[in-house]
Every structure is written in structure tokens, then in C-alpha cells.
């Protein structure tokens, strides 16, 4: 019984998180400006991280959590770099 509840709730959560990723993808494509795209990329990183955590819950290995940490780290560095670029890129132009 509890196995079924867990299985279905994690599956539903994964579907919902996947839908969230698609919605952020819409904003990534639609823009309209560069800062909107960077913001949606950042949100997408977070959703991907949570998705990996749910995969880790299902399988029960540590590897997924380490990948989630790595994604969080890369997302942070990437967004900071892009934000800095948005700030400075215009000054140089």
C-alpha cells in the first residue's frame, strides 16, 4: 500500500516538475529581453535540481544528490556570470 502511494506521488511530482520546466522553457524562448531569458534559465536550473532529487528518492542512491548539488553550483556560477555580462556588456558597447 505505502509502496503504491509513494510510487504514484513521486511520479506525479516528477510530471508536475517536468511541466514546470516546460513553462520556464516557454519564457526562455519568448523572452522578450535578455534578462527574462537569464531569469528563466536560472529557474530552470532549480527545477532540474529538484527533479534530480525526486529521481534520487526513487532509486535511493547518493549519486543523484551529488549531481543535484553540481547543477545548483553550475547554475549559480552561470547566472552570476550572465548577469555580470548583461551589466557590463552594455557599458562597453
Amino acid at each position: 500500500m505505502s509502496a503504491m502511494i509513494l510510487f504514484w506521488s513521486i511520479t506525479i511530482a516528477q510530471v508536475v516538475l517536468g511541466a514546470a520546466m516546460l513553462v520556464t522553457l516557454y519564457r526562455l524562448i519568448a523572452g522578450p529581453r535578455a534578462q527574462d531569458r537569464v531569469l528563466s534559465l536560472d529557474a530552470m536550473y532549480v527545477v532540474a535540481m529538484l527533479l534530480l532529487v525526486t529521481f534520487g528518492m526513487r532509486v535511493g542512491t547518493v549519486i543523484y544528490f551529488e549531481v543535484a548539488l553540481l547543477i545548483g553550483l553550475l547554475g549559480f556560477v552561470g547566472t552570476v556570470a550572465l548577469a555580470k555580462f548583461l551589466m557590463r556588456g552594455e557599458v562597453i558597447e
Binding site: V16, V23, T24, R27, L39, S40, A43, L50
Partner: peptide, 21 residues
């Protein structure tokens, strides 16, 4: 308890994404 937590978390993340769009 686990399903409630994971579903609420996923739902809030989804709402955040919808807000973004």
C-alpha cells in the same frame, strides 16, 4: 507525509514557473 511534502513542493515550484510565464 512524504507524498504530501513532495506534492506540495512540486506544486509550488510549478506555480512559480507559471508566474514566471
Amino acid at each position: 507525509l512524504i507524498s504530501a511534502c513532495v506534492l506540495v513542493g512540486a506544486f509550488l515550484t510549478f506555480v512559480g514557473a507559471v508566474g514566471l510565464a
